[in-house]
C-alpha cells in the first residue's frame, strides 16, 4: 500500500491517474471501469449526459467517496490511502452550491482558510486577495444568498481557490449562468490554467468544452472517447448536414436507399455525416423527393461526435441553442466557413 504512491508530485507525475475505477451504489453501477490520465497543467474536460457518472468520478477524486474497485491518484497521491495530501492539494467547485448562504462571502472564505489551517490573520488576508482578484470585493460583505447567480458561482470558485490549489475540479461550475457571466468565469479559469494549475472540469455547454486541451466523453460509466477537441471532431471526417423537410420519414427512407447514412436519433431533424457536405448538398436538394424547409452544413460539433459514438444525444433538450452567437472560444476556426 505505501509503495509507489509515496512519490511526491513532480512535473513527470500526472495530475490525475484513474485506473480501472468501478463505483457501485448498491445495484447502480455508476462507473464501470474508468481509465484516464490528466497531465499536469492540462485543461481536461469530461463530457457526458445526465447520470453518466461525472459527479461520481469527481467525488472519488475529491476523496468524498471511495472507489468500489480500482484506484485513483491526484498529483501522485492515492485518493484513499493519502486522503489528506489530496485534500490539501486540490480545490473543487461542486455541482451544487457549497457556500454558507447566510454568511458573507468574506466570512465564507475566511472559514475556508481556517479549515485549511491558516492562522486567522493570514486567512483574512487571503480572502481579501481572492475577492479582489475575482472582482467580488464590494459584494463580499453581504450574506451570500443576496448575491447574483454569477457572483455566487464566482464565490464558489473563490472558495476552491483559497488554498492556492495545484489542481482544480469544476463540476458544472457555470450551470445556469448567462453567456457574459460564463465568459467572465472561464476567463479567470484560463488565467489559472496559464499559471500552471491543472483544471479538470465537466460542463453541459459545448463551447466551454472546446477550450479543453483534451476531452473525455463518458457515457453510462464508461469512457467512450478521449482526445483533443479537434481530433474528436476529425473522427467524423468532413462535416454534418442537417435537413428539415416536410416529411422526414420519407426523406430518411430515400437517403438510405441512395446509400447515405442518416443518424438514427437527431431530434426533429435529419442529420447526415459526409466527407464533403458542401459539394453533396446541392445534389441532395435537387433530388430529394420531399420539400426541404431548411438545410445547414456545418463543422461537426462535439454533440455530433457523441451522437455518432453512442447513438444518444449528449445534453438534454435544455441545452442552450442560443449560445453559439456568443463567439465561443475556438468557435470560428476550422473549415466551417468554406465558401
Amino acid at each position: 500500500m505505501p509503495s509507489a504512491s509515496a512519490t511526491p508530485a513532480s512535473a513527470a507525475t500526472p495530475a490525475v491517474e484513474v485506473r480501472g475505477v468501478v463505483k457501485r451504489y448498491g445495484a447502480v453501477e455508476a462507473l464501470r471501469g474508468i481509465d484516464l490520465t490528466v497531465n499536469t497543467g492540462e485543461m481536461f474536460a469530461l463530457l457526458g449526459p445526465n447520470g453518466a457518472g461525472k459527479t461520481t468520478l469527481f467525488s472519488i477524486l475529491a476523496t468524498l467517496r471511495a472507489p468500489t474497485e480500482g484506484g485513483a491518484r491526484v498529483l501522485g497521491h492515492d485518493v484513499v490511502a493519502e486522503r489528506d495530501a489530496v485534500r490539501r492539494a486540490m480545490g473543487i467547485v461542486f455541482q451544487e452550491p457549497a457556500i454558507e448562504q447566510r454568511l458573507s462571502g468574506r466570512d465564507n472564505l475566511l472559514l475556508m482558510g481556517l479549515l485549511y489551517g491558516l492562522p486567522t490573520a493570514a486567512a483574512r488576508r487571503r480572502a481579501d486577495e481572492i475577492l479582489g482578484q475575482l472582482g467580488l470585493a464590494e459584494a463580499a460583505d453581504r450574506p451570500a444568498k443576496t448575491l447574483s447567480g454569477g457572483q455566487r458561482r464566482k464565490l464558489e470558485l473563490a472558495r476552491a481557490l483559497v488554498t492556492d490549489p495545484k489542481i482544480l475540479f469544476l463540476d458544472e461550475a457555470t450551470l445556469g449562468l448567462d453567456v457574459d457571466a460564463r465568459r467572465g468565469f472561464w476567463g479567470h479559469v484560463r488565467g489559472l490554467a496559464a499559471a500552471g494549475c491543472t483544471v479538470f472540469f465537466t460542463t453541459h455547454y459545448m463551447e466551454e468544452a472546446e477550450v479543453a486541451d483534451r476531452i473525455a466523453l463518458i457515457d453510462q460509466g464508461r469512457i467512450v472517447a478521449l482526445d483533443t477537441p479537434r481530433a474528436l471532431k476529425a473522427r467524423l471526417g468532413g462535416g454534418v448536414i442537417r435537413l428539415k423537410t416536410d416529411d422526414d420519414t420519407r426523406a430518411r427512407a430515400w437517403l438510405v436507399e441512395k446509400n447515405f447514412t442518416p443518424e438514427a436519433e437527431a431530434g426533429a431533424e435529419l442529420m447526415l455525416l459526409h466527407a464533403d457536405p458542401a459539394a453533396v448538398l446541392p445534389e441532395l436538394l435537387r433530388h430529394l423527393p420531399v420539400k426541404v424547409l431548411r438545410a445547414e452544413v456545418k463543422e461537426p460539433s462535439l454533440e455530433d461526435v457523441f451522437l455518432k459514438l453512442t447513438g444518444r444525444k449528449l445534453a438534454g433538450d435544455e441545452a442552450p441553442a442560443a449560445l453559439g452567437a456568443g463567439g465561443a472560444p475556438g468557435g470560428g476556426r476550422g473549415k466551417g466557413g468554406r465558401p
Binding site: 490539501r88 457549497a98 454558507e100 475556508m112 479549515l115 489551517g117
Partner: peptide, 13 residues
C-alpha cells in the same frame, strides 16, 4: 443537506 459541509469534508480537517 446543504453544501457548505461538503466543503468542510474535502478540507484536510
Amino acid at each position: 443537506q446543504v453544501g457548505f459541509f461538503k466543503a468542510v469534508l474535502v478540507s484536510p480537517v
